[in-house]
Design a protein around this nucleic acid. Structure first.
Lengths: 209, 209
DNA sequence: CGAGTAATTCAATGTCGTTGAATTGAAATC
DNA sequence: GATTTCAATTCAACGACATTGAATTACTCG
């Protein structure tokens, strides 16, 4: 980096500029989010003209996609928390979830990925497919039984609620609860989802499928 | 509207321009989302100069907040479902939630509003404050008791999960479940949140505060 | 009537992402 | 080895954006 000496044209040797831009972009996007980061600031930090980024990646969205494609580590966390006693699965998963999101190293990745995915339909579809395949299906497989997928869905819905309320929205009091408080107040609901609805609680006219 | 005749200065009569701008802004924001809508387009549609909007509302965020304040308040839906038998509160609230989001008239509006709010930190803060004040505090007040706010938080978290999984992400199987299925599989967890953790379920080393 | 204030437009500013042209180096072709 | 071709790079400009300051007109209160 630190070229930008005003000299036009191609640089000497084989250029690694593209990779440098990508690395700067990835760090900045994960640190400050998509909107807040400007192409010009990335270009300046990478010692490069702004136009070069458009030349390489076509657009700001293209750069964002390329930067995220580098290290996309989706919900692998859940798989590691899955094996073990089903009774303590809510606690294990909640701890894994909080640990992943509050890890200083990779925590911001998830937030930025989600925020970006919600604004772009294509990214949203991609994320949805990953979550269904890697999370819901695995949980359903772990649970077993007739309505395993529905129970897994209810389970995942509550986890999504934690992510949404605590990390995306920072809603109080969820945002500042300790992990133990989270477990104490949310684990019962998660357990209820795992067990599924009781048969004698069916609403009138409903048939168990 | 339809002034913009080039004549400077105040208009004749008592001006209702502010309300018109607000109405246009609300419709456009709900239709296309925060990012996509430009102040200039709102100004043009309202027959007004762009600068007038900044004069009235300070900034684009201010306009969004003002438009949001008079829009169909999502928290108001919960308030209407709140009074009644506590045992059936989860069912009432789930029906109200689904009804509000799947109402053809105002259905996608809430979604766009949320997506817009999540992309900008200031807008997210605005939404957060509304939800805390209008939703969590009301539920806590309804519940009563020592840890009412924590239980309300757990309750709201699960509702946030429904919104996130079913409407924002369209995650299967939650997205295509019927209302009755949603109730059957999620109401137990919501009831558990309302009741709070059982005392004999405290993790080792934990003390009830 | 006169002073103050509210509403309104105009013009300017600075930032943003993107585009086209010019320049330079490297690789391919003859 | 010279020439053509292509990739990388900067520069300059464009149009759109939100915001701000100044000018202009109308209303309100004494």
């Amino acid at each position: 980096m630190m070229n930008k000496s005003g000299t036009r044209g191609r640089r000497r040797g084989r250029p690694e500029t593209r990779a440098q831009v990508l690395e700067v972009a990835r760090r900045r996007f994960l640190a400050d989010g998509y909107q807040a980061v400007t192409l010009r600031s990335i270009a300046a930090e990478a010692g490069v003209d702004v136009a070069l980024i458009s030349y390489f990646f076509g657009s700001k969205k293209g750069l964002f996609g390329a930067a995220l494609a580098l290290s996309a580590n989706p919900a692998e966390i859940f798989l590691q928390a899955l094996p073990g006693d089903p009774a303590s699965l809510p606690e294990r998963i909640l701890r894994a979830l909080v640990g992943a999101w509050e890890d200083p190293a990779g925590g911001g990745q998830l937030r930025v990925m989600l925020a970006g995915a919600l604004s772009d339909p294509d990214l949203a579809r991609l994320l949805r497919e990953v979550l269904e395949r890697e999370m819901i299906d695995r949980i359903a497989e772990y649970l077993g039984g007739a309505d395993a997928r529905l129970r897994a869905g209810a389970f995942a819905t509550q986890l999504a609620g934690v992510i949404f309320a605590r990390y995306l929205l920072a809603l109080e009091p969820v945002a500042t609860m300790t992990v133990d408080e989270l477990i104490r107040y949310l684990a019962p609901g998660l357990r209820a989802a795992l067990h599924g609805p009781r048969l004698n609680r069916l609403p009138a006219g409903e048939v168990r499928r």
